[in-house]
Design a protein around this nucleic acid. Structure first.
Length: 583
RNA sequence: GCCCCGGUAGCUCAGCCGGAUAGAGCGUCCGCCUCCUAAGCGGAAGGUCCCACGUUCGAGUCGUGGUCGGGGCACCA
C-alpha cells in the first residue's frame, strides 16, 4: 500500500520539469510515512519541503503543484496540504478492503516477498564455544539470530544459517583434561582440580560415559610430581598446560585426542538438541578444525602473502591490519609456529565468500567488537569489499528473579543454562523476551515476569488475541451459524466502526513492518507491531460482537477477524512463538 | 588513553532515512463481566528525551565537546 503511494508521488514529481535539477532521492520511500495522527490521513509525505530549497520555492506552493500532477488512482480518496507543506493522503476504504481480501487469499504468505537469488546472506550466530552447555546469554543470540533469519527471509532474502564450532586450539585440550581428571577421580585417583579447568557438572556426566577399562594407569603422585602451583598461589595457565602435557603422555596422542573428541561430540550433541528444542536450526555446523585439516588456513595466508599483506617480525608473521584502519598489526602465526585464532577467522570468512555468499552477517557478543575491524581488514586485504561483512553486536543479559539480580559465574559452573531457562519460563516467553529489546541494549531478563501468566506478560497478550479468534469460531459452530469468506469479503464495505477502520489500517501495515524490521535488523519492531495489533483486536472485541444475526455483517466482521488471526500467526511464527487455538 | 553500546514517565523499554501535540507495558487512581475467554476493555495522573553548543524551515533523532553507566583494547579462544 505504501509503495503504491510512493509510485503515485514519484510520477507526479517526475512530471515537474522545474524539479529536474533538484537532488534525486534514492527512493521516495524515505519521504512517505504512515501518518501518526488519523486527522492527517493515512500517509504523509514531506517531499515538497525537502525539494523546496533546491527548487527555490515555497513548500506549500510546491506541494499544491505536486498534488495537481498526481495520477488518478482509486487508492486515494483525498489529498491535502497541511502544516508547513506536508502532503497528506487519505486512502479510500475500498483500498483497505482489497488489502483484507489479499490477507485472506494469501494467508501465511501475506507480507512476505518472493525470494531473490542475490544477495545470498550467510547468517552466522550463536557459535558458542563447545566447552559446556549454552547459558542464558547464548539464548539471546539464538533467539535474535533465528528471528532475524526468519525476518530476512520474509523480506525476500536468501539466508543460510551457520554455527561456527570452535573445536580447535587449547580450549579443546583443557576440555579433554577436565574430563580425564574426572575419569581418574572415578578410578580413585584424586588430583586437585585445576583452577583453569572446566568444572561444571556436565564434565562429570561426560566422564561417566568413558570406558575406564581401556585407559592406561597412572598414579596421583606421577601426575602431581613437579606440577606448577595452581592459582591463587601460582600460574593456573602453566599448571593446566603441564596437565595437558601429562595427559598426552599418559594416554598417547591418539588416546587423548579420542577422549577429547568424545567430550566434544557429547557437548555438541547437547547444544544441538538444546537449540532444536528452542526452535533454532542451522543449515551447517562449520568446524574450525576442518579449516586446518584441509589446509585452508594456509591457503588464506598464502593469498595474503602474495598480496604482500604479511611480514615477518620477531619470529612471528604479522598481518598489516593498520593499512586498513586497525590500530595495530596483528599476529597470524606465532613465533612457536602455531596459527592464531585470528588466522582461522580470516580463513573462515574467506571461505564463506568463496562458497558464494555475498553478504556475511555475523551475530556476535558485544565483547567482540574490537575484533570486527580486524576481520573486515582481512577480507579487504584479500580483495573483497569490507561492506560484505556486517556485524550485529548483542549486548549482555542480566538475569533477575522478582527484581533480584542473579549472580552468575561460569568458572564455578554456577550459571543458569538455556535449558533451565526454557524449562522454567517456556519457549514462547523466552523467545519473545529475548527479541523484545533492541540487540544493542542490555537486557534485563526477569524470570518471574517472563513466567507470569498475567497481563504483565505481553507474549500472552498477543497469543490471547489469536486464541480469542479461534474461540469466536468455536462459538459460531455452537450457535450453528455460518461464516462465508467470499460473502465476508464482498461485504467489507459494511464495516465502518472506528475500531474496524483502525484494525484494517494496522493490518495493512504488516508488509511495511516486515520490510522495516528486516532492514533495521530489528526484530523488536515486529514485537511492538504485534502488540499494537493485538491491542486493536482486543478493543474491537470488547466494543462490538462479531457473531451477529445480520448475515452480511457477520461474514464481514468474521472476515476481518480471520485476517487478524492470519497476521498474528504469521508474525508470531517469525518470532518463533506459537499461536495457540485456546488458552 | 583509544574504541563500541547505552542514558526518553516512578520502573522496564519503543520511537522507522529529521517532521505535525514524544509513545507502550508495568506500577498508581477511577470505571466496565446477564453479552463471542476479564490472560480483556475504557479513562486519568505522570516528561528539563543526561548537559552544552552547532547544523536545519523543523532535532529525542544529525554533528562537536562534556558527563554518567556497561563492554572491549593478547604471539587466549
Amino acid at each position: 500500500m505504501k509503495s503504491s503511494i510512493e509510485k503515485l508521488l514519484g510520477q507526479a514529481v517526475d512530471a515537474m520539469p522545474e524539479l529536474e535539477d533538484a537532488p534525486e532521492f534514492e527512493s521516495l520511500s524515505t519521504t512517505v510515512e504512515r501518518a501518526r495522527d488519523p486527522r492527517h490521513g493515512d500517509f504523509a509525505s514531506n517531499v515538497a519541503m525537502r525539494l523546496a530549497r533546491a527548487a527555490g520555492r515555497n513548500p506549500r506552493e510546491l506541494a499544491a503543484e505536486i498534488i495537481a500532477r498526481l495520477p488518478q488512482s482509486d487508492l486515494v480518496d483525498r489529498v491535502e496540504i497541511a502544516g508547513p507543506g506536508f502532503i497528506n493522503f487519505h486512502v479510500g476504504q475500498a483500498a483497505f478492503h482489497r488489502e483484507i481480501a489479499a490477507i485472506l487469499s494469501q494467508g501465511a504468505d501475506y507480507g512476505r516477498r518472493p525470494q531473490r537469488e542475490r544477495p545470498h546472506i550467510l547468517l552466522e550466530f550463536v557459535s558458542a564455544n563447545p566447552t559446556g552447555p549454552l547459558h542464558v546469554g547464548h539464548g539471546r543470540h539464538a533467539a535474535f539470530g533465528a528471528t532475524l533469519g526468519n525476518l530476512l527471509e520474509a523480506a525476500g532474502n536468501r539466508v543460510t544459517r551457520e554455527y561456527y564450532v570452535n573445536d580447535a586450539g587449547r580450549q579443546m585440550d583443557i576440555l579433554g583434561v577436565s574430563v580425564w581428571l574426572r575419569v581418574l577421580e572415578r578410578m580413585g585417583i584424586e588430583v586437585p582440580f585445576p583452577a583453569a579447568g572446566y568444572r561444571g557438572d556436565y564434565i562429570g556426566d561426560i566422564a561417566t560415559g568413558i570406558d575406564t577399562a581401556t585407559l592406561p594407569a597412572v598414579t596421583a603422585d606421577e601426575l602431581l610430581d613437579g606440577l606448577p602451583a595452581d592459582a591463587p598461589d601460582g600460574d593456573k595457565e602453566k599448571r593446566i598446560g603441564a596437565l595437558i602435557d601429562r595427559a598426552y603422555r599418559t594416554l598417547g596422542d591418539d588416546g587423548f585426542v579420542a577422549l577429547r573428541q568424545q567430550a566434544l561430540d557429547s557437548i555438541l550433541d547437547d547444544i544441538r538438541d538444546d537449540l532444536a528444542e528452542f526452535g533454532v536450526e542451522f543449515d551447517r555446523w562449520f568446524s574450525e578444525q576442518s579449516l586446518s585439516d584441509d589446509n585452508r588456513i594456509d591457503e588464506a595466508l598464502d593469498v595474503l602473502k602474495k598480496r604482500r599483506m604479511l611480514y615477518e617480525k620477531d619470529g612471528a608473521w604479522w598481518f598489516r591490519a593498520t593499512d586498513f584502519g586497525d590500530e595495530k598489526d596483528r599476529v597470524v602465526v606465532r613465533d612457536n609456529g602455531k596459527k592464531t585464532y585470528f588466522a582461522s577467522d580470516i580463513a573462515y570468512h574467506y571461505d564463506k565468500r568463496r562458497r558464494g555468499f555475498d553478504h556475511l552477517l555475523d551475530i556476535l557478543g558485544s565483547d567482540h567488537h574490537g575484533y570486527v575491524a580486524r576481520v573486515r581488514a582481512g577480507l579487504e586485504a584479500m580483495g573483497y569489499a569490507g561492506d560484505d561483512l556486517e556485524v550485529e553486536l548483542v549486548q549482555f543479559v542480566t538475569l533477575f528473579r522478582g527484581g533480584e539480580k542473579m549472580q552468575m559465574s561460569t568458572r564455578s559452573g554456577e550459571f543458569i543454562t538455556l535449558r533451565q531457562l526454557r524449562d522454567e519460563v517456556g519457549i514462547d516467553a523466552a523467545r519473545f523476551f529475548y527479541v523484545s529489546r533492541s540487540n544493542d541494549q542490555h537486557l534485563d531478563f526477569d524470570l518471574e515476569l517472563a513466567k507470569s501468566r498475567s497481563n504483565e506478560n505481553p507474549v500472552y497478550y498477543i497469543q490471547y488475541a489469536h486464541a480469542r479468534v479461534a474461540s469466536v469460531f468455536r462459538q459460531l459452530a455452537e450457535r450453528e451459524l455460518d461464516y462465508d469468506e467470499a460473502a465476508g469479503v464482498a461485504a467489507l464495505k459494511r464495516l465502518h466502526e472506528d475500531q474496524e477502520k483502525a484494525l484494517m489500517s494496522t493490518l495493512s501495515r504488516y508488509p511495511e513492518i516486515i520490510e522495516l524490521a528486516a532492514a533495521n535488523r530489528a526484530p523488536q519492531n515486529l514485537v511492538h507491531y504485534l502488540r499494537d495489533l493485538a491491542n486493536e483486536f482486543h478493543t474491537y472485541y470488547n466494543a462490538h460482537p462479531f457473531i451477529v444475526d445480520d448475515d452480511e455483517l457477520r461474514h464481514a466482521r468474521l472476515a476481518l477477524v480471520t485476517a487478524t488471526r492470519t497476521v498474528i500467526a504469521s508474525g508470531l511464527g517469525i518470532l518463533g512463538v506459537s499461536a495457540p487455538e485456546s488458552m
